[in-house]
Each structure stands twice: as C-alpha cells, then as structure tokens.
Design a protein around this nucleic acid. Structure first.
Lengths: 109, 109
DNA sequence: TCCATATTACAATATCTCTTGAAATGTTGA
DNA sequence: TCAACATTTCAAGAGATATTGTAATATGGA
C-alpha cells in the first residue's frame, strides 16, 4: 500500500462515528449492512451516515453494492489489512516489540 | 487501549509529516533524535516540527527527554503496538483475513 | 554574566472537517 | 403512472487543523 492511501485510511478511521461503522461492518461480515441499518447502529442521522459512509468508501475502508432499494456496505478486509501491514512492516520495520503488542510474538505487552 | 486514545493516535498518524516523523523515530530506535534532527529529516521548519512533535507526544505516539540542550524524542513502541492491537483485535475481532494481510497467517493477500 | 544554539509559544490566515436540515434522486410495488 | 421508502446531494455555520513568521524561553559554554 502506498503512503497516500494509508494516510487516507488513517484519517478516515480517526473519527469516532466512522471507527464504529467499520467495527460494525466487520462484525456483519460478508452479509454487510444497509446504510439505514448502519446509521441506526451508530446513532447517526441518515445524511450524516451517508457522509461518513462515502468518506470510508473513498478511503477504501468499505465497499458498497446496491441490492434492490438498499445499498449494502461491507468492510474491505483486504485494504484494512494492507493498511495495518503498511503500519507494521513498512512504517515500523516490523519491529518485534510492536508485533508482540499485537499478540503475534512473545514480548513487551 | 481505549477507543479515545486509539482515535487520538489514528488522527495523529493520519498526517504526512507526522507519519514520517514516527517512521524516522522508529528507525532511530532507543537512541532517539532531537527536534532539530527530526525537522531536518522530514523537511519541516522548526516551529512546524515542534507543533507536530507535541501533537504526536500528546497522542502517545512518541516520548521526549531533555539531554543537555537537546530534547530527544523516541517512538513509543508500546502505545503504537497497543493501537494496532486495538485495531486488529478489539475493532476487527482479530479477523483472520486481516491478520493474514499483516503477514502473520496464510491468507488473502 | 553574556552569547549562541535549541526549542517552544504565539498570532494570523487559510483550509479542511463535522454537523444539520431540506431538497433531490433512485427504487420498488401497486 | 403513482406513492412510499432508502439514500444521496446541497448549502451553511461552527469548529478543528495546518502553515508561516516572529517572539519568547531554556540550556550550555566562555
């Protein structure tokens, strides 16, 4: 992943409502959730939910697909994983202490 | 790590200059680097570097310590790792596809 | 003490982001 | 076609953030 896209993703996730949207969509899995459903879950008015969903989609954190009258959103696991890989490996050189904090190796935390 | 601190860290990292500062400080390791050194490395004027360094320190991404006339900054590996653990485990439920993207398991990427 | 260096704090401006409500668009079923 | 529902777009104001240059503070050495 390029630095630019990682920055967009980090910016998109650094907002309370959007972080909760992503968390909810990860839980929903491949089934996804409609915009209205997402808005209800995170307590956001429809226009606000729409705004945050388009920000997340533009950053590559989620994807969308129309299903009849609903638009179904899903977490983009690949991009989210690539962003974390960028942070972990490109940015932090795969530093053992940081990897350990993620629960992958014995270590600092 | 609590959601609030994770949001602060994500916001701090979602800025080009600051991401580069963290990347440079991770490379510097325990030795750290002075504010002037950091500013030169990322091509930022002193007041700008100071502003970004204090933002990063406030978010917990880095720490500082005065050494004679310099102030030495170091990456806070523990907090950075905890933030990634928060994203990976709390937020994304340790989803296998995302973990795989980070190079810890066989999988999607 | 004084000077030189390193760092931070301040003020002003410009730019971006969040939020809200209303209007517009698109879709379904009758 | 129409009515009902889901979603997006738009406009406006409030607030946060980035940038720059300048001034202020702190430290070390003479």
């Amino acid at each position: 992943m390029e630095e630019n896209q990682a920055l967009k993703l980090l910016g998109a996730l650094s907002q309370e409502t959007r972080l909760r949207i992503v968390r909810y969509l990860v839980q929903c899995g491949a089934q996804g959730a409609s915009a209205g459903d997402v808005g209800n879950q995170v307590g956001a008015a429809s226009s606000r939910a729409s705004f945050h969903l388009s920000t997340l989609e533009n950053a590559g954190a989620i994807s969308s697909e129309r299903q009849s009258r609903n638009i179904v959103y899903r977490a983009d696991l690949k991009n989210l994983g690539n962003m974390m890989s960028f942070l972990l490996n490109d940015c932090c050189n795969g530093h053992p202490d940081i990897r350990a904090c993620c629960g992958f190796e014995d270590g600092c935390c």
